[in-house]
Design a protein around this nucleic acid. Sequence first.
DNA 1: CAGTATCCACTTAGATACTG
DNA 2: CAGTATCTAAGTGGATACTG
Lengths: 152, 152
Amino acid sequence: MTKTASQKKADAKVQYDAFLAACPSHQLLSQVSGKWVTLVLSALGSGPDCAGDPRPMRYSELGRIIAGVSPKMLSQTLKSLERDGLIRRTATATVPVTVTYEVTDLGLSLHHTVRQLKIWSESHHDQVAAHRSRFDDEQVEPATLAMVTSRR
Amino acid sequence: MTKTASQKKADAKVQYDAFLAACPSHQLLSQVSGKWVTLVLSALGSGPDCAGDPRPMRYSELGRIIAGVSPKMLSQTLKSLERDGLIRRTATATVPVTVTYEVTDLGLSLHHTVRQLKIWSESHHDQVAAHRSRFDDEQVEPATLAMVTSRR
DNA sequence: CAGTATCCACTTAGATACTG
DNA sequence: CAGTATCTAAGTGGATACTG
């Protein structure tokens, strides 16, 4: 039995998904674009004020600085960063236990790379916003006309 | 009536979400990390083989090159990129109509910035993978012990 | 203090069918 | 050719309560 067109398509998709999943840059991108990853990385990499030097911080300190993060997301984010060797976790056996996190050299180098993206976005933000509002204005015109004529 | 603790917390969260939503670099990051954005951008910015020069391409050509993309996601991605001024859409009134897309200067500059990230990920991929497998091995040890003892 | 466990709501993407 | 419309499935984040 020969393959149908939809089977071939499905095969191609699987191949492609495998490729995407194996692609290092896509892995990185989806990792880095997690809602809290960059916040943790920049807190740890640039200090609490995001403008200083790298400094180890405790779990609860991160939770305080990164407003709105839930314990779940914080530990999830920290764990995945630690897993990838971007941050280092240190537990000291006091009572209660003290845990600190700090960026590794690897994490710091990623942080610097991501900063470049940040710089791009800040310096081109105006242009993007301008394009966006102009685009939206153009799109709305026909729609509003339709709305006005159809309304009542 | 004074605010309860949970109300204050909710307020803080709203404030924070508004801040995040307004933050240009986070907007960019979530935009760029969309599954198809980088693929479209690199197809348009580096040609079909991802190693050439920028060249205008047609809707169906993009659909063919970017394996696995549905028409819905392709047009959605193209539209948002056009909205932000990163690509330009040109329709020629032939029968049937011909539409081409090409990167703008703005889009090209973003493409180059993202390439830096790609380069980072490719040159550090080994390190990350090494950390990851070592981390996973360490974590599995106690779990396997539990599994072995509990199994049957 | 430093998390884990659970449940729920919501966004997103994919398949599919249809249109100017 | 170049899309749009609709429905559904799945992954993700959030709130909350609990634990060593």
